[in-house]
Design a protein around this nucleic acid. Structure first.
Lengths: 156, 156
DNA sequence: ATTGACCTTAGAGTTAACTCTAAGCTTATA
DNA sequence: TATAAGCTTAGAGTTAACTCTAAGGTCAAT
């Protein structure tokens, strides 16, 4: 049975974060001392580590709540429920990557077009490009091409 | 001279957002009616469109403030200042992409490992993987490999 | 008994970029 | 002149996931 700071050391979460997760129903201490100190047993530690791992992979606290309820009662849940959550998260991640690749390409094109030197910015091609405003559209076209090849969306 | 809702229609920003940008020093109306109505001229519209474009590319409001001050007085600023902001943003974007690719790979591995069927989750390999907790470490190794090849970091 | 490290709680603060509300004034149109 | 649409402001609310603070109680060691 360990106290909160030991669990914190073990998991790499802060004590604050552990209490925060508890408030959100993700973690709990299976015992409390008379004075109210939290005491964690081995199962509590595993659960905390589950949360840590899931968080690291990018699941939201809400996702993790669902995964935990499945983990707690595996008989009553199907593998499909688990893959639904996972696939949905993968879709979100893929969408965000697409957006960021668009930004990446736009920024790279901007950098290529500008001398970047100590000259004054009177004819700076980056400022000009932002002024004209068609950077976005150009790069979006490029992004659209590479998009289909980079996407891993299932249509089921 | 257009009113705020016309500028909103023109730029695709909301009136709320335009006032919000004004409060943060990015946009302003070059005139006000006696009653305080904002009136925008062609230069104001161009500036608003500059902000819209820059925002779309992923610059923060703070970045845009800097870009605008350069745009307003090009003689006093160098191209290097502009590329510094742009390169810094590109670095941020690349870092975020790396994180997301790690998540993407981890999620894909998890999906591959699980049947996803209507069976109950007693032996669900996703739940097991999160329980064991080494998913993260495995995928991070994979991410590290592809990382060097995907990164476009300059070291200047 | 005292010290210092650690624990408790409720609740406020942080970040970015909006987004909305309330209460009231203005403007254009019929 | 009445009405509806649109404008003004200050300020509060939203989101996610923490992060911190204040005020006080507990515990182990000396």
């Amino acid at each position: 049975m360990m106290k909160i700071s030991e669990l914190a050391a073990q998991t790499g979460l802060s004590s604050h974060t552990i209490r925060f997760y508890e408030k959100h129903g993700l973690i709990s201490a299976s015992e409390r001392s008379a004075a109210g100190y939290r005491y964690y047993n081995a199962a509590d530690v595993r659960r905390a580590e589950f949360v840590k791992t899931a968080r690291h992979i990018g699941f939201s606290l809400e996702d993790i709540g669902q995964l935990l309820s499945i983990r707690l009662d595996k008989q009553s849940h199907s593998c499909q429920e688990v893959t639904d959550i996972t696939r949905h998260k993968l879709d979100e991640v893929n969408d965000r990557i697409s957006e960021l690749r668009f930004m990446q390409q736009t920024l790279e094109r901007l950098l290529e077009s500008c001398c970047g030197g100590p000259e004054n910015a009177t004819h700076c091609s980056i400022i000009e490009a932002l002024d004209v405003g068609d950077v976005a559209r150009d790069a979006e076209a490029v992004a659209a091409e590479t998009d289909s090849e980079s996407r891993s969306r299932r249509m089921s």
